[in-house]
Design a protein around this nucleic acid. Sequence first.
DNA 1: CTGAAAGCGCTTACAG
DNA 2: CTGAAAGCGCTTACAG
Lengths: 352, 352
Amino acid sequence: MASVTIYDVANHAGVSIKTVSRVMNAEPNVRPATREKVAAAAEALGYSPNLSARSLAGSKSFVLTAFVDAALTLDHWSSERGTDYLTRIQLGATLPCREAGYHLFLELIDHDTPRMRQEVSSLLAALKPDGVILTPPSSDNEIVLDLLKKSGTPFVRLAPERSLPGGLRMRLDDRGAAARMTKALIDLGHRRIAFIAGEPRYGASRARREGFLTAMTDQGLTVEPTWMQDGDFTFQSGFDAARRLIGLRERPTAIFASNDDMALGCLAAASEAGLNIPTDLSVAGFDDSTGSRFSRPTLSTVRQPLVEMAGAAARALVNGQVPADCDTDAAPDQFPPFHLVMRQSTAPPPKA
Amino acid sequence: MASVTIYDVANHAGVSIKTVSRVMNAEPNVRPATREKVAAAAEALGYSPNLSARSLAGSKSFVLTAFVDAALTLDHWSSERGTDYLTRIQLGATLPCREAGYHLFLELIDHDTPRMRQEVSSLLAALKPDGVILTPPSSDNEIVLDLLKKSGTPFVRLAPERSLPGGLRMRLDDRGAAARMTKALIDLGHRRIAFIAGEPRYGASRARREGFLTAMTDQGLTVEPTWMQDGDFTFQSGFDAARRLIGLRERPTAIFASNDDMALGCLAAASEAGLNIPTDLSVAGFDDSTGSRFSRPTLSTVRQPLVEMAGAAARALVNGQVPADCDTDAAPDQFPPFHLVMRQSTAPPPKA
DNA sequence: CTGAAAGCGCTTACAG
DNA sequence: CTGAAAGCGCTTACAG
């Protein structure tokens, strides 16, 4: 079946193709009667503008690309473990795209391979996306960020971990989420709560630390200096910090590690010390990483609202709200809502 | 950054754009020296052909589209249950696409809504995909099939259930898989094995039935006529059939239901009769549906190898092996390998 | 083996 | 408010 083009519609409606173009793009300066005539003709002929032609002629490609790590996806899939990035991104981004006449290419990227630069570079050249949604670890990949900037493509970085510049950085409200998790531990009955901070270079670390301290203070609880431990977001640093905390004379009844990897380190340290989680000690993490769902016990944590974030990212991109040289954190009121996920690693404190 | 075009490469190499085009598309009739010169220029400039331009000028769009059900995806995601279609399709189809310079649009389709026809139709008009991969329930949706045929788009139907015509139909080897599951039950020690057949209109039903009978015969086992029950692939029909089987004087020790829904019906009937699965009775299904993974007990079943099927589908499509008017079952040697997934619902028969 | 011309189906920039 | 011309970056069909 020969496809119907803008010329067919123009003929059918008795106008020029430019007028058809105006109507299809909802541009101003068309008389209502003309507009309706054209719309009717398009409807009757079943006309939809060819994406390639629009893309080639115009300044927009009507294409968004999301970068997702190939290895991570493969791992998620083959281990048959719950939630995965791909579906969440797709679900979140699809609706805003559809509403704006956009289409989404979800590209699996082989991070940390020699050919990645070449792959990403030709992806951008071939697709010319109007915007790119980066998910971890793309969000923090210097080569990706570099290529994106050079190509002048607007991009949104979801849940970036490192304080690299560039793009619209979108993450949950770390401060508020940490405060809420702290409050949840307090509500369980805990009073002696320790905190393991992350790599201090990252804004997220500071924000989570602040959230913890604020919540404690707000509830009228004191924080012993020895309960504030430094970590660097690694399992090992969580393990070491937990060891120190467990050895304390005035041992805390709960540890809030400011990411899941460190919280998993706490579980290991507790196990080594013969402590039962959660009856002897509660442990909470942050991120809702895959590991948190399959540790023993499973970890109470804070979930990054990836679906909502992908939606907000797509919306910002299709609305042209992200300039090519953007280098800002998303405004606080754009912070998507987070969720506390309380699993097996937290419980009321042991009776004194 | 102004992007580099075919003209830049032509200038750099001192040839015409047509020659550059030949080299980029690996066409014949270019002197090796010229070819190298052009390749070097493209490399040096970081040139990648613009997909829109190729698509608009040429007969191919270099785009494949996969249709996935929106509601199903949403359900999979929000229930936080393992495997999902989306990831499997993406993983399977990505590699063949990449190798052929193709890109994949994964489109979420709202099946069974009034606007579906319009949506799919404009999708095809806008994207002009060179091929479409259909997953259930798109594989059996008459409107989708109709639109695809009218548009002249080659398509592959993954795991189609109904005997509607059209496309390249790709499914696992039902006969072989049923035989293998039967063999697995026999290997567990079962001799009295019942079978619940599906809707006889479907080829798959007949094939599974044959596979069962063949395996029983090959192992020298007899099949009582009362052990062969008719079902129609619904939960209810499985429930009813299982009731009849359980009431038999010579009750079978295992029931092989030829799809998961019917097998789940068997579980319900067994529960009603106070039988313990698997100690009193083994039950096996077919499909590896989501339900099979979360029933109590979890169901032993046959997995549709969706990743491999998506891969084979993408390969056939990008290689142009699927004519627009294709209406055939994939050749038996193209049947992707299946896997038996033995879970909690099967065990050795009770000691007599 | 190589290239000049035409055209894919739109949007842009401009004119009226 | 509407339209005629030019051009986006390629491939096709043809010529040499």
